[in-house]
Amino acid sequence: METIIQEVTSKKQMNAFLDLPYVLYKGNPYNIPKLRFDEAATLNRAKNPAFDFCEAKYWVAYQNGKVVGRVAAIYNKKYVETWKNNYLRFGWIDFIEDIEVPRALLAAVEGWAKVLGCTAVHGPLGFTDLDFEGMLIEGFQEIGTMATIYNYPYYPVMMEQLGYGKAVDWVEYRINVPEKLPENIAKIADLVEKRYKLHVVPMTSTKHLKPYASEVFKLVNETYSELYGVVELTQRQIDYYVKMYFSMIRVDCITLIANEANQLVGFGISMPSLSKALQKANGSLFPFGFIHLLKALKKNTEADLLLIGIDKTLQGKGVNAIVLREFHKNYQKAGIKIIESNPELEENKKVQSIWDHFPARQHKRRRCFIKHF
């Protein structure tokens, strides 16, 4: 069957691009539908500040007039300058189980890459490290999270058939929250707090969080700078993320650590799991989607770890034990029994070794694929 590729240049085509996953994964018990307005904003040149230094093209695949695939291509100029790799990114890739569809979609991406003089195409990646990245290659029968991509098992098989290989993998853990914090974690946390004159920032509402919001992302820039594909967030991006996400965060799921000068030196951000609520909302806040989300934020037995960062001068000195101690204390109060780590680079053994102290299992793996020209 002939596959026709069209570049997205109209509102109708963008709607087709945004709508495909809700059709392709309808009824799938493991997929977590993204909020449609959030997806639309990220891809919108007028709204996403990443377009200050990014170019993007989107394509939709059709067979017999029916949408059967989609892909985005992103040329991140700051990535090229920072990493000295003239690579084009792809993301938001979905397709039916017909290899001719991803073949045609990726041919469009590769064609643009060659016009730009790129030497490789890699993905799935987003505009920034805070966008969705990594194609699932293990854990297809595990429920996803709001921060990750779900895809069918045939996706990575077809990527390999089309000449794409491994660039990097991320792993994920499902962790049981023990009744009692491991004694060694508690001792290290107390010792480090005293030795380096650190303290946990007291917070009872988001108004206590807001003064530190920008500092959190500045610390993200510092601590995440050497991770695969990461590009420093601009102030406009920081302001965008603070406005979009910090208003809905529960402060008892956040730990901020400051030094004696009250400067932020570490943080841990988590939130109650929205996976099941997002499945019920199915991409829309209205008329009832927001109710499911509010209920999940208020009462839950599961949580997602989103970001942990420690000032480089204090890394490897046990500060993360303070974050774990505070998380454990707050999870016990909130009735949280299980947490999802979300993706961690497979070579990041320091982070993964933390879960050796808890009942945990590595249950998912995802991959960034690459194809050199």
Results as ranks from 00 to 15, higher is better:
K280V: 00
N28S: 01
N348L: 03
V200R: 06
P156M: 02
L125G: 09
F132Y: 14
T301W: 06
V80Q: 10
D304V: 04
V80G: 08
T145E: 05
I291R: 03
V8M: 07
I339V: 13
G91S: 05
G229W: 08
F327S: 04
Y62Q: 08
T3D: 04
M158A: 05
A107P: 12
M135Q: 11
D129V: 14
N28A: 00
D311L: 06
E346I: 12
I96G: 03
G165Q: 13
D98L: 01
V71Q: 07
A113T: 06
K47V: 10
K180A: 12
M14Y: 10
Q6N: 15
P49V: 06
L227T: 11
E142A: 08
K218D: 14
C118E: 07
R45A: 13
W83A: 04
G91Q: 05
E226Q: 12
A147Y: 12
K349T: 11
L294V: 12
N262R: 11
I370E: 12
K329Y: 12
P359D: 15
K243L: 07
P202L: 02
L256H: 03
Q141D: 14
N330A: 05
R195E: 15
Q13T: 12
A167H: 11
K350T: 15
V242R: 00
W112M: 10
Y331P: 05
F286C: 04
E142H: 12
E226A: 13
Q161F: 02
K197G: 11
F127N: 09
D304S: 04
A258C: 07
V220K: 03
A321T: 00
E340F: 13
V109N: 07
Y173M: 09
T119Q: 15
S341N: 03
A213Y: 02
N76H: 06
K349F: 13
E55K: 11
R325E: 04
F140M: 01
V109E: 09
I175D: 00
D38T: 08
A167K: 14
E340Q: 10
M14D: 07
L285R: 00
S270D: 02
A50R: 05
P124S: 09
N348K: 02
E344N: 07
L297M: 12
F140L: 03
I310F: 03
G268T: 06
P287R: 01
E55D: 15
R366I: 12
D19V: 04
Y150P: 02
K218Q: 13
M14P: 09
L256C: 07
C253S: 13
E55Q: 14
I336E: 00
K349R: 11
D131V: 05
A50W: 06
E172N: 09
N342R: 02
E346D: 10
I93W: 14
I354P: 04
R70C: 06
M14L: 14
I188C: 07
L306I: 04
W92F: 15
N342H: 03
Q352W: 01
Y152G: 00
K166E: 08
I99Y: 00
F373E: 12
